[in-house]
Design a protein around this nucleic acid. Structure first.
Ligand SMILES: Nc1ncnc2c1ncn2[C@@H]1O[C@H](COP(=O)(O)OP(=O)(O)OP(=O)(O)O)[C@@H](O)[C@H]1O
Length: 691
DNA sequence: CTCTGCGCGATTTTT
DNA sequence: TCGCGCAGAG
């Protein structure tokens, strides 16, 4: 397609955005206004204008959207597009780091640790340092360290600024953590970005090289970038300043990962000659849906106001459904899905969106009961399943023998008589000598380890060598097959009559298939790049829309997607907005943005459901509808809510039922009638009853 | 060294 | 409710 053809599929504002080829460009626009479409077409337009695709860098939020964007551009301007660079910040940085790892004291086969790996490592460090894990909660420490990395604060700097003994301890954990990662030739997610920034800052010639390579930079979902990501694109675009960012401040929902809304709000102050384009027409949703979403988001104070209109039909009003329990809620949703399906909406065009992954349980049960095909995105992520992680750990030690974390993960899986004592000694010796465990195993005879274990370890080591030799240049799939064979993994781990085992074996087969796909697509691929790729994979990346199944996912995962019909479930105060974010206005505003994102995923049909009770780890608690529902004008609902909620209820959410009526382990519950109370915990509004 | 079972604590979102 | 860490028996 030529330039004219490309522009023909855009509105005036969108065209204008394409035709501004040079200089800083900010596209600020509401949901469904075609931001992603504009950026995609702009890339095609750049190429059609004679710009070399090699000089284009596009950053997307997920691997999947990068893939989609790539295909869309290809369909517009053909195979030339193959030469551009597209991906998430993390995948782009990992590719850059592969080339220059040595300059940072790593090698190109470095492993990437995910959140869980990092937390496990921190746990270990905390216990090695004999620190109480109640004060030093691994997850919290990980967050602190992540934040420090994103701000490029070193352990030494942090130590200097510490003003409490606990902060000094954290500085030590941080230092140990970095040391351990380096020794393992591994990086965590934050390292990928921050080390790339350090690389560009430290080596002007490398910075210049990438400036010349990526002369045109585009960033989608810019509202969810963090400061260091800004720093990165700032460095990359330093020479040419051709930087186009696209986003919607109302859809910033990743502050917990450091996303800073300031990035988009002050873009035009940082880049003085920024041109700003606002897209105001929504092409996605009916008028009623758009009106509902707008009435919610206007309650936020910290925002750049935007106009957003739709030329489409009014459409159907919103459905508001009240239930007594999450199970009933889930069942009702399934009934509604059947109805919409009968009216011609295919299951694949429907989505159930929720605040937390735990909510998918009752939905899954209901879908099975109603025999509705479904797909859950995200809750138990494919590459985080034990069976998959174990095999990946085997691959990791082949690709990166320094990776002690992976080695320790599988040295006794399947069990082969290498116990805690023996592995601890190995770990200690390795640490003492500053070497990796695989390095020191050949000297095992000199260590204080019982002979039975020595034998087991030696057997493991010769198996490792055998796998390593046999799998050389054999492709990823074959390598995994060799691992499975040599370790006798399936037979030793699973029993084929147990349904749990069957599903795990199926997952392993799926891994083999995807490895095979990788081998075919990447002719000169290798295990190292395969691993670096899959380490950055998320569940949404594996998600294929083609199958006709109802989609279930968190609102976070649904970012950027659209569906004909959307069900927003669990709209109760304390769940959505989540209780943990009720303390400050900032946090409530982010919950509101999240709710806004949820509503704006819908094209034609939108249903909001809530339940009068909320499940919490087996206990059931009374709850009231989300405050966000109240922000939608009642006239936009098909049906008036049965439940009258008002301010007094919002301010006084306590329900004293459990306190007053518990007697002889029997209580009268307003919803369930007579119940038996098994135990209660907490007091006042913390009181929980297990029934 | 391995396996099982019991008690405890936790509230979210994910590249 | 569920996933963990730990103790204690085989
Ligand atoms: N000019 C246009 N003509 C027809 N359809 C359009 C136009 N622009 C956008 N659309 C359609 O509107 C829908 C939303 O577009 P897109 O996903 O690009 O919006 P967005 O602004 O990125 O949304 P969000 O902020 O919710 O991620 C898509 O189905 C897209 O094809």
């Amino acid at each position: 397609m030529d330039k004219i053809g490309i522009l023909a599929e855009l509105n005036e504002k969108q065209k204008e955005a394409c035709q501004i080829i040079e200089g800083p460009l900010l596209i600020l626009a509401g949901a469904g206004s075609g931001k992603t479409r504009t950026i995609t077409y702009r890339i095609a337009y750049l190429i059609a204008s004679g710009i070399n695709p090699i000089n284009i860098l596009a950053v997307t939020f997920t691997n999947k959207s990068a893939e989609e964007m790539k295909q869309r551009v290809q369909s517009l301007i053909g195979d030339r597009s193959n030469f551009m660079t597209m991906g998430t910040f993390h995948s782009i940085c990992s590719r850059i780091l592969r080339k220059h790892a040595e300059l940072l004291g790593f090698t190109s086969n470095y492993a990437i640790y995910d959140q869980k790996d990092s937390i496990n490592l921190i746990k270990k460090i905390i216990s090695n340092l004999d620190l109480p894990k109640e004060t030093f909660k691994p997850k919290r420490i990980k967050n602190v360290i992540g934040k420090l990395k994103r701000e490029l604060v070193s352990p030494e700097q942090y130590e200097k600024s510490a003003y409490s003994p606990n902060m000094l301890k954290i500085a030590i954990i941080y230092r140990e953590y970095i040391k351990y990662l380096k020794l393992n030739n591994s990086m965590d997610f934050d390292d990928l970005i921050s080390k790339t920034v350090l690389l560009l800052e430290k080596y002007p010639e490398i910075k210049l090289y990438y400036n010349n390579k990526f002369k045109f930079i585009l960033v989608d979902e810019y509202q969810d970038t963090n400061r260091i990501q800004f720093k990165l694109i700032n460095l990359l675009s330093d020479v040419y300043n051709n930087i186009c960012v696209v986003g919607d401040d109302d859809q910033s929902i990743y502050s917990f990962r450091g996303a800073d809304i300031e990035n988009i709000l002050s873009f035009d102050q940082v880049y003085k000659n920024t041109k700003t384009i606002r897209l105001e027409q929504n092409y996605r949703s009916t008028k009623y849906i758009l009106k509902a979403a707008s009435s919610v988001i206007v309650n936020n104070v910290e925002r750049k106001g935007k106009t957003l209109f739709s030329d489409w039909k009014n459409g159907e009003k919103l459905n508001l459904i009240e239930s007594y329990s999450s199970m009933e809620e889930a069942n009702t949703v399934m009934e509604e899905i059947k109805k919409l399906n009968k009216r011609g909406v295919s299951l694949g065009n429907l989505a159930i969106l929720y605040r937390t992954n735990a909510q998918s349980r009752s939905l899954e049960m209901a879908a099975q009961k109603f025999q509705i095909p479904y797909i859950i995105v995200g809750s138990v992520k494919f590459f985080e399943r034990v069976e998959i992680k174990n095999i990946i750990a085997y691959l990791n030690i082949l690709a990166n023998p320094k990776d002690n974390m992976s080695l320790l993960r599988i040295i006794n899986v399947p069990t082969r008589g290498i116990g805690k004592k023996a592995t601890q000694t190995l770990e200690f010796e390795a640490h003492f000598k500053g070497k990796s465990i695989l390095d020191i195993i050949p000297n095992i005879a000199s260590m204080d380890i019982p002979s039975r274990s020595i034998k087991a370890i030696n057997n493991f080591y010769s198996m490792y060598i055998k796998i390593k030799n046999n799998s050389k240049n054999k492709g990823v799939r074959k390598t995994i097959e060799i691992i499975l064979e040599e370790t006798d993994y399936i037979d030793k781990m699973y029993n084929k009559t147990d349904p749990e085992s069957v599903s795990r074996i199926e997952n392993i087969e799926e891994l083999l298939n995807s490895a095979n796909e990788y081998d075919i697509i990447n002719e000169n691929g290798n295990i190292e790049t395969y691993l670096q790729q899959v380490s950055l994979f998320t569940d949404i990346d594996r998600w294929k829309e083609v199958s006709d199944r109802v989609n279930m996912m968190t609102v976070h995962s649904a970012k950027g997607l659209e569906f004909t019909g959307v069900f927003v479930v669990g709209a109760m105060d304390g769940l959505f907005p989540h209780i943990i974010n009720l303390e400050s206005n900032d946090k409530i505003e982010e919950e509101r943005r999240l709710f806004y994102v949820a509503l704006t995923r819908a094209k034609e049909y939108l249903t909001i459901t809530y339940s009068r009770t909320r499940d919490f780890h087996g206990s059931i608690n009374p709850s009231i509808p989300s405050r966000f529902i109240k922000e939608i004008p009642e006239t936009l609902f098909k049906n008036k809510p049965y439940f009258k909620y008002d301010n007094s209820l919002l301010e006084e959410p306590k329900d004293n039922i459990f306190e007053t009526n518990i007697d002889n382990n029997l209580a009268i519950h307003p919803v369930f009638g007579k119940i038996r109370v098994i135990k209660t915990t907490g007091n006042g509004d913390q009181k929980r009853a297990y029934i």
